[in-house]
Design a protein around this nucleic acid. Sequence first.
DNA 1: CCTACCGATCGGTAGG
DNA 2: CCTACCGATCGGTAGG
Lengths: 200, 200
Amino acid sequence: MIIILKETKRKKKRFSRKDEIIRQATIMFKDRGYSGASVRDLAQLSGIEAPSLYSHFKSKEDILQRICDEMAKKFMKGLAKSEKKESATEKLKTALKLHIRTITKNTDASAVMWNEWKHLKGQGRTEFKKKIRNYEKRFQYILKEGMDNGEFVYYNPVILSKLIFSSLNGLSFWYHGNNKNIGINKNLQKLLFQGIKNQD
Amino acid sequence: MIIILKETKRKKKRFSRKDEIIRQATIMFKDRGYSGASVRDLAQLSGIEAPSLYSHFKSKEDILQRICDEMAKKFMKGLAKSEKKESATEKLKTALKLHIRTITKNTDASAVMWNEWKHLKGQGRTEFKKKIRNYEKRFQYILKEGMDNGEFVYYNPVILSKLIFSSLNGLSFWYHGNNKNIGINKNLQKLLFQGIKNQD
DNA sequence: CCTACCGATCGGTAGG
DNA sequence: CCTACCGATCGGTAGG
């Protein structure tokens, strides 16, 4: 009984240390950029010595990869949910809402993903890029669907999706806890939908 | 006569080398981030040895500062021009057009300015931030003006300006020479103005 | 998770 | 604009 308790406790402690490192790394990568963040400073903020990081992660890049992969997964999940809706309008509305929610609930990690993924290398990089490309393609597909069936005004879907993603992803830099109640989602939906929706 | 010619030539050569360093630095800072770009690689791409950089610039940060300051100047110039227009609608239309033009004509430098300015330090940093803040405030003032006199629908001007800037500044990452003719400006004006203009 | 330590590379200076 | 060189710091390993 005592042994089990100890095991549980030890496991718990190890996992939270790992999470703490990721949490600190996310903040550092955002503020100083991936290259500007040193493993020594990261270790110190996490309460351990630098070499101890390597019992949790195989490299500095490994940490970045995990941050990017986890965020990509969250964005994908939101999009999959929106694709289940009936109309293109509802799909787009939901996709926007969930994309915004993912960002505002993870501002630092979102900023790191969109701005620091370029430091990824090898297979991890390739797979990450594939995921993001897939996300964009599926988003564009929703736009196309709405344009084809007359729900939306016609735009170049690639340009439109790029513009939308830019405006949304910028959120990760200026959205803070203290402007939580200014109706980002409502303002954005209003602004974008006025331009996108077919008013006939 | 010969002496003057030589002087001119020498000056010209020195200036073009300096410009070449800035040009290469802009590309490197964008691709690898400020911290990820080494002065050695920068020197090599510019065709000189690393220590020779320091006869043109007093530090690595000095190069970044010049890139940021020059771009800030270009953005300010466009805004000043738009403020001379009569109506808020015309001001906004011109401000958007010139902001877009500044970005598409300087994609790399724009990306560096918006993403790497955080590496600036000391007085240069303070002054740069002041300029950007001023730019945003004046842009927001145009929005407010249009909302007050009924030209625009009411939004929170701060949110609206942040959203607009995000969508525009994202251009520096996906706009390339090969999508020059897809009507970015027209698409953007259409998208944003539908949401902003009062349709009464 | 630590101490001890590594080679490589960093931005930058001296002196010409 | 170069050669020669600096101390500091980088990401990471060995071994416990």
